[in-house]
Write a protein that binds this DNA or RNA. Structure first.
Lengths: 202, 202
DNA sequence: CAGTCAAGCGGACCGGCGGTCCGGTTTGGC
DNA sequence: GCCAAACCGGACCGCCGGTCCGCTTGACTG
């Protein structure tokens, strides 16, 4: 995506996205959302999205590169608000709260997001491209790592952060919520003891 | 797999597997192991395994039902020894040790197994069939849940067990080991604080 | 306003995959 | 040695992600 935001004025050397292209991008993203809702992650092929958007599949690949690029773009929309909240927002998510509270609030928020956008996250998870080094997830894991450093500096923060983030894996959430009938509150509560172990034993 | 173990005597009403079929099953499993090693999880198609085994692909589907059935069978071989060890073996894995030690030893052992059979586990993970409710994994999660109950009975043991098991997700291990260059010892060590949080705060 | 051309578009096409099917072959009990 | 049941192989199917290329269209220029 080396194209400047269409809302900005043209910049020397950078061409603006054509109006029809921008419109199509929007239609495609909306169509993808609808297909995800209707057919689920498993049934959401590029052909299906293209048909729903009334667009050739070539157009989708031109815009988003490949399958996971499409879902990345969709995820970014939802992730942005969350990122703002934990980086600049009010406590307990934002920087005014103590680190342990922030970590708990962060995981709660992430679980809410996962629960809300399950099919999208599953679609992303399908091609292994998602998870650990996922572009959008990178910011999250950096944030968690910094919180962990704050809580107990002697830990290996990056690795611990990955372990924690993986505990709330998409597939697990789907299974617990859908097949095992576990409530979100239960999952959140069960996560607490794990993060409690991070605090210095004193 | 409703066919009796070929080593046993025939039982009334249950037909023994034919000799050639048994031989083929073994050839297929061996071939799958070789292909996994040579081409990795991503490059291990059923066609490739069939070719390597010198067998038609129909034979594979007859034997193992579908793609993941093949890898399940392969996993079972490796899982059995581990199961024996934590159910009947010596401490710290076996029942003679205190529950917290057993849990730590269990996770260490699981990580060793993951590291050792990475490609196989990745192949299993590819079709979502793996993970949470994976047939072979079920026994593991039951075991972890029982240890957790022993450690702190007030926890929601099944959910906590799943969270813990997911923290050592296959994809994460691959990423940490292969791309991030993290040692197995580091991963094990980073897991300790998390399970430490399970112990009653007293 | 007309001309120009890069950008954008669509859908036929490709290779590869998991899975099915069925005509021919093999096995093993009698 | 006979025969039915079990087994086998690989052609075949539908689907999917991704590519390609001839045609269309938007937007800048004079």
């Amino acid at each position: 995506m080396d194209i400047v935001d269409p809302g900005e004025l043209p910049i020397a050397g950078v061409r603006r996205e054509r109006a029809d292209a921008a419109a199509n991008r929007e239609r495609i993203l909306r169509a993808a959302t609808r297909v995800l809702a209707r057919r689920g992650a498993e049934g959401t092929s590029i052909d299906a999205v293209a048909a729903e958007a009334g667009v050739g599949k070539g157009t989708i690949f031109r815009r988003f590169g490949d399958r996971s690029g499409l879902f990345q773009a969709l995820l970014d929309e939802h992730l942005r608000a969350f990122q703002d909240a934990f980086m600049f927002g009010p406590p307990p998510l934002g920087p005014a709260a103590p680190a342990p509270d922030r970590l708990a609030a962060f995981l709660d928020g992430l679980l809410d997001l996962l629960d809300d956008r399950l099919e999208l996250m599953l679609a992303l998870a399908r091609d292994g491209r998602f998870q650990p080094p996922l572009a959008g997830y990178l910011a999250l894991s950096v944030h968690v790592a910094s919180l962990i450093t704050e809580i107990r500096p002697t830990l290996d923060a990056p690795v611990t952060a990955q372990l924690l983030l993986n505990a709330v894996n998409v597939n697990l959430v789907r299974y617990l919520r859908r097949d095992a009938g576990v409530s979100l509150a239960t999952i959140k509560a069960s996560l607490r003891p794990l993060i409690a172990g991070l605090a210095p034993s004193d």
